[in-house]
Design a protein around this nucleic acid. Structure first.
Ligand SMILES: [Mn+2]
Ligand SMILES: [Mn+2]
Ligand SMILES: [Zn+2]
Ligand SMILES: [Zn+2]
Lengths: 144, 144
DNA sequence: TCCCTATTGCAATAGAGTTGCATTTGCGTA
DNA sequence: TACGCAAATGCAACTCTATTGCAATAGGGA
């Protein structure tokens, strides 16, 4: 058990270093947090969690942005003027880019897999450019 | 010609009043501006234009929001933390809700018609809720 | 034309994120 | 293992977009 945690810690440290960054406590805690998340987290969600560790919000911002630039995280804005970050893990379920659904009522964010445009739409979209991200908004089932 | 403009003016005033709002110079100018636009305009784009008329930016914000609430405009956030507004004209080409494409490089916004999800995706999306808006992001053809 | 209330201008305020700078610390190297 | 320096951090000030309070102004129905 303890051995497990130690291994996890080491693998997180390694990932950070392989991205060209230093494995600081704040960064390790951030990745641990995102590792256990089922949807992208906002800066304030991460900052709240790391406050116990005495990490400043500016540091959280810088780390999230730096790790996104380094390719460890993916950063998106889902229409509510707040940045959200999620893990870019090769093996993970949400490793690669995928559509998101945002409830315009309660703000809940869901990661969607398997959502695609029609072949015709794909063709038409080339007229505009190369699509890299799909965002769907609407009313979630809880909000009716 | 002059008669034409007068008729347009009257129809704009009428539309504002039918929405339950007063037809003020600032609102009329805003609608005229949006009437001639081919993509949604930001608050600052509208505010810059109305500055010549001596309209305050707070007034522009209030009018855009109020007219959106009243159903004359549609308000959206396309991922760059700026509100954009477009006309909700029954007859107009972009009258009803439609997908938008945003270039993550240059910020250009395009209104897309005819872009749809696959039937399978529509079915899967019901698991999350009712989709009311589709936003696509990527690299426009100008930006490569 | 009059009156009431919606609307406006102006300034202060809010929220999310960014930045400058002095201090601390990870980690490659000796 | 100890050292040195660039990277990272804490803290405060600042930017940008948008919102709000309040007194003055002006639509438009009666
Ligand atoms: Mn996701
Ligand atoms: Mn549009
Ligand atoms: Zn909801
Ligand atoms: Zn572009």
């Amino acid at each position: 058990m303890k051995q497990q945690k130690s291994e996890e810690l080491e693998s997180i440290k390694l990932a950070i270093r392989e991205a060209g960054l230093r494995a600081t406590p704040a960064r390790i805690a951030t990745l641990k947090l995102l590792y256990g998340a089922t949807s992208p987290l906002t800066h304030s969600e991460v900052a709240d969690e790391l406050q116990d560790l005495g990490v400043d919000k500016a540091t959280v911002f810088r780390n999230l942005n730096d790790m996104a630039t380094a390719g460890l995280l993916r950063r998106t804005e889902l229409g509510d003027r707040v940045w959200r970050f999620e893990l870019v893990s090769k093996g993970g379920e949400h490793g690669s880019a995928h559509p998101h659904f945002v409830c315009v009522d309660c703000g809940t964010v869901s990661c969607m897999d398997e959502i695609k445009l029609t072949a015709g739409s794909m063709r038409l979209s080339q007229e505009f450019g190369e699509i890299t991200e799909i965002l769907l908004r609407g009313h979630c089932n809880d909000c009716g």
